[in-house]
Amino acid sequence: MASPESDAHARKGARYWVALAVTGVIGGILSGAFGVGGGILMVPLLIGLTGMDQKRAAATSLVAIIPTAIAGSATYFANGEVDLLVALLVAIGGVAGSYLGAKLLRRIPVVWLRWLFIALLIGIAIRLFLIAPERGAEVQVDWLIGLALVASGLFMGVASGLFGIGGGVILVPLLITGFGAGDLVAKGTSLLVMVPTATMGTITNARGRMVDVRAGVVVGLAATLASFIGVALAFLVPPEVSGILFAILLIISAVQLTIRAVRLQLK
């Protein structure tokens, strides 16, 4: 006997699967080019093109991020643009922070925190507009910088859990503006950090029966293939332009969070 999920898939036409693939291509290029998960565009595209609700779209996007981040970080690593120690330290804080953020979401009012976070994104975007990242620069890690990287991962994880925004949007500009990393190293390291965090999030979503595995595989396959195009673009674009483009991405993220915050306050 066919399962309800397989029956639902059978009723979906070719347009649905094409929409998933298109979403994956756009998200994959964004992921490879900027070192982010791509959810900033994949989630609204899945909602608009396939009719998924917010939670299922976010869960599907997270499934797709896993192979995309693996492929993207491997490509950056092959070109010497991943800092393994930095990734490890940030991931330690990020895993703990994502758990803490999910817990805090249920217990504290986040209205004023959301507006402070929006202001922080805009501030970082302005800095990226004014100061171009230095390509090839590396993070010099000592014990103090190491603690700061763990703290940055903790902040990234908490912010992701509280506000539903991808960690890469936070981590890449933090590594560039706060730790002096080159833009390519920041992007490659960010993608590597996403592998364990996206995996943990997907496991949690699977337990809550929020994951449409077949849709996630289609989006993920398209995103993975497209991520190689994104990485190639990242290496071709000058660091000055890269900083400006990432600043625009931060502004888009801030606008999305602002719209969400206004809607929540109007309820």
Rank of each mutant, 00 (worst) to 15 (best):
G167K: 08
G101C: 02
K55S: 09
G48T: 02
Q256K: 13
T224D: 07
A14S: 13
G48N: 01
A69P: 08
T224S: 15
W112C: 02
S227R: 07
S242G: 12
R127G: 00
G32Y: 11
R209N: 13
P196D: 03
A198F: 06
L257K: 09
I248P: 03
G101A: 03
M194H: 04
A234S: 14
G94F: 04
V111M: 13
L128S: 03
F228C: 07
E138G: 06
G157H: 02
V22C: 06
G13Q: 12
S73P: 06
V150L: 07
L149T: 06
T202Y: 06
T224K: 10
G32W: 10
R127Q: 12
F235I: 12
G146T: 11
G13T: 11
W143L: 15
A91R: 00
E5P: 01
P238C: 11
S61D: 11
G153K: 02
V213W: 14
L191D: 09
S152P: 00
D83H: 12
A232T: 14
L149P: 05
F246P: 03
V218G: 08
A222H: 08
I131K: 11
G80P: 13
R11F: 01
A247R: 04
K55V: 12
Y16G: 05
G201Q: 05
S3G: 02
P133Y: 09
A125V: 02
I122G: 06
A87Y: 00
F77W: 14
G166E: 07
A151C: 11
F179D: 07
L171N: 05
P67H: 06
A64I: 07
W17S: 09
S6K: 11
L221V: 15
A226W: 07
E134L: 13
L121E: 00
N205V: 00
V22Q: 03
M42C: 09
L249R: 09
Y76R: 14
A254R: 04
V150G: 02
A159Q: 00
V172H: 05
F246A: 09
A223I: 03
A96E: 01
I92Y: 01
G48R: 00
L233Y: 11
G230W: 09
V255M: 11
L264R: 15
L245R: 12
G157M: 02
M52L: 13
I244S: 12
V150K: 01
G39D: 06
V43R: 08
A198R: 08
G216N: 04
A64R: 03
D7I: 10
F235Y: 14
P239I: 08
F228D: 05
V169F: 13
T224R: 09
G24D: 04
F246K: 10
P109Q: 15
G208K: 15
A19T: 04
L191R: 11
G72T: 10
A215P: 01
M156T: 12
P238H: 10
T177Y: 05
V150P: 01
F246N: 07
G216F: 03
L236G: 10
L46M: 14
P173L: 04
A247G: 15
A64M: 08
S6Y: 03
R15T: 14
V63G: 04
D53M: 09
V185W: 05
S190V: 06
A96I: 10
K187C: 12
